[in-house]
């Protein structure tokens, strides 16, 4: 067992109205950042866990997303392994 560090990103599904993103876009517009589009606000969850392998760590992260961290009706998620040189990803 090794300690792995995961970054979980949870985002509203494409096509789903994201009023926060829209409000931010309006604010950026009024600050003069013209031409911004499709701003979506999600969350990032950092977590450390013990697992047998990098793949197992990512799979555990995905399982956590399916069960709790993301709502399958409204959100997509992406799990990224942060240890090591090359990130291992698993998205849904």
């Amino acid at each position: 067992m090794k300690r792995y560090h995961l970054e979980v990103r949870v985002k509203p599904r494409p096509g789903l109205l994201d009023p926060q993103g829209r409000a931010i876009q309006h604010a950026l517009d009024s600050l003069g950042f013209a031409g911004t589009e499709d701003i979506r606000v999600g969350k990032v969850i950092d977590l450390a866990l013990m697992a047998g392998s990098p793949d197992a760590a990512v799979e555990l992260g995905r399982e956590m997303c399916r069960k709790l961290l993301a709502n399958p009706v409204t959100e997509d998620f992406q799990v990224t392994l942060m240890n090591g040189a090359r990130p291992v990803e698993g998205a849904e």
Partner: peptide
């Protein structure tokens, strides 16, 4: 129940 309850569109 199906579906979800999201942030009010008025924020």
């Amino acid at each position: 129940l199906p579906g979800a309850l999201l942030r009010n569109d008025t924020l």
